[in-house]
Write a protein that binds this DNA or RNA. Sequence first.
DNA 1: CGGCATCCTTTTTGATACTG
DNA 2: CAGTATCAAAAAGGATGCCG
Lengths: 94, 94
Amino acid sequence: MEATLDLIGGQWKGVILFRLGEGTKRFNELQKLLKRVTPRSLTRQLRELENDGLIVRKVYAEVPPKVEYSLSDKGRTLGPVIGALIDWGNTHAL
Amino acid sequence: MEATLDLIGGQWKGVILFRLGEGTKRFNELQKLLKRVTPRSLTRQLRELENDGLIVRKVYAEVPPKVEYSLSDKGRTLGPVIGALIDWGNTHAL
DNA sequence: CGGCATCCTTTTTGATACTG
DNA sequence: CAGTATCAAAAAGGATGCCG
């Protein structure tokens, strides 16, 4: 369980995973959805999620650049966990 | 969900919650169960969990001192969440 | 036994500016 | 658009020692 928390415990990782659960998103879209995140932080969280194999980063060789992020198969297995977190939060939020 | 992660996202909080789910524990017992945690860190995590109303701290006015930690009613509602985290970790651990 | 105080090092985060 | 670079600041964590 410590391992699981390490994977989703980052400041923004939970929300990123949740948002990507809704569908593929571009860097810019994520940045708008996660108010108050700096590009630097967002980049780092995305890289960690990618290294952990939870999300997939797809780069299009275009101008202007286009990068899409989506859940990997492994990332999708987190669905129930994310769901449990959200349910509890909705029920017990201050 | 960010709120939920804040509550259980600390370095040791998940394990503490899990262990207290097994039953009431004393400070010393927790320290033994959580290898490598320093008293300072353990104290701080316990205080935060207490302030969040997830655990109960009971002090006995004895010599030597005795302090017991246990889950609060609110803390017990986290059971399914903890369970989901553990299940996922067991299934997908490296 | 169950801490708190102090000091120090490591890790994380933010703000701002700039680039392929 | 999707980042990187750099600096500064804050938060977290460990080590050690002392106390009621």
